[in-house]
């Protein structure tokens, strides 16, 4: 295992960088004649609804490649990949946070792949040896129902969620959700294990409703079943697009506060993949301006590629206080984080 130089996601800086860069020239369109054929097996921690449109576009470009998708939780698929190391079934693994891909890289699950346009990915968003590369960023935000909560009363920090006034009014994704797992791992770095444990205990005591995924959370808040939800920022936009009375808070922006936690989605090519060439094409497509644009347009995400415009409704990360945490350390603490969640009985 190549030793990975620790790197800090200096997101404040990166966000500035993203905003500063002018749009780069679009990558050359692929030549269909050169396209490899076959089944490309993609294990995706992103739910199907959030990845299928991109796959559809990719397949429109490469009609000879059939993408077989298995969507699940990051950890479920990671476990499968570990089990399949001797006999790999997947070609690609896509996650909703970077800890899992980092762990898989440590375990030797990936082979390196350097995208056709390596400068499309800022250095902080790929493995130094290109064992994985980042795709998009998402902020962990609070969504609230405006018919039930006034903007003034809305919680301004994730730590506010343990306050008794929110008892029975909160929804979040549970312990199998990669976004939530990564958030907790980040909190352990940001506020320490004791405070994180107290926060989780406080959530349980506040009768937070943990769902299997964020879609349930946004729908429940949108419908008014719960007042506030802890989600990735685009779930707010998706719910808003359905006409629900919801608003968003980018939390912990105050002086001395930790800042909003930002995760990135990552992807890597499986070592021993049967369709490595097609896998490379897929990654290249996801990193191309078109692919990045799809994530931004359809799913309100922050493209990792500099210069790709945000969806007009999405608040830029520029100027926001972003939480700074170490992905490598977080990846190493992933299992202990899962143990913590289980011990505390977070469903």
């Amino acid at each position: 295992m190549p030793a990975l130089k620790p790197f800090i996601l200096k997101l404040t800086l990166v966000a500035g960088l993203l905003a500063a860069c002018a749009p780069t020239a679009p990558t050359a369109p692929p030549e269909p004649g050169a396209a490899p054929a076959g089944d490309l097996v993609l294990y995706s921690g992103r739910s199907e609804a959030l990845i299928q449109p991109v796959i559809d576009q990719f397949q429109a470009l490469y009609p000879d490649i059939n993408v077989a998708l298995k969507a699940g939780s990051n950890s479920e698929l990671a476990a499968a990949l570990l089990e399949e190391r001797a006999n790999p079934q997947a070609d690609l693994f896509l996650t909703t946070e970077l800890m899992t891909v980092q762990k898989m890289a440590n375990e030797g699950v990936f082979q390196p792949y350097q995208p056709g346009t390596p400068d499309a990915v800022p250095a902080d968003y790929h493995h130094p040896d290109w064992l994985w590369t980042g795709l998009t960023l998402r902020a962990r935000v609070l969504i609230y129902n405006t018919q039930l909560v006034t903007p003034a009363a809305a919680p301004q920090s994730v730590l506010d969620l343990t306050k008794p006034e929110w008892r029975g009014q909160l929804a979040a994704a549970g312990s199998t959700n990669g976004g939530f797992q990564a958030h907790v791992a980040a909190l352990r770095q940001l506020i320490g294990d004791a405070a994180t444990t107290a926060w989780l205990t406080g959530l349980s005591a506040n009768e937070v409703q943990f769902f299997g995924g964020h879609t349930d959370v946004r729908k429940a808040v949108g419908a008014g079943e719960f007042q506030v939800g802890l989600v990735n920022h685009y779930y707010y936009h998706l719910q808003k697009a359905e006409g629900s009375p919801v608003a968003v808070v980018y939390p912990d922006q105050g002086e001395g506060q930790m800042g909003v936690v930002v995760n990135a989605t990552g992807i890597g090519v499986i070592a021993g993949a049967r369709h490595a060439a097609a896998a490379g094409l897929f990654i290249d497509y996801l990193l191309s301006p078109e692919g990045q644009q799809l994530f931004a347009e359809l799913n309100y995400e922050y493209p990792v590629r500099p210069g790709v415009p945000l969806h007009p409704e999405v608040q830029p990360l520029t100027g926001l206080r972003l939480a700074a945490f170490d992905v490598v350390a977080a990846a190493d603490s992933l299992e202990s984080t899962l143990d913590l969640l289980e011990t505390l009985g977070i469903p």
Binding site: S75, A78, S175, L338, E342
Partner: peptide, 8 residues
């Protein structure tokens, strides 16, 4: 939950 949340 164990199967989808844990490696072990």
């Amino acid at each position: 939950l164990q199967l989808s949340g844990r490696y072990d």
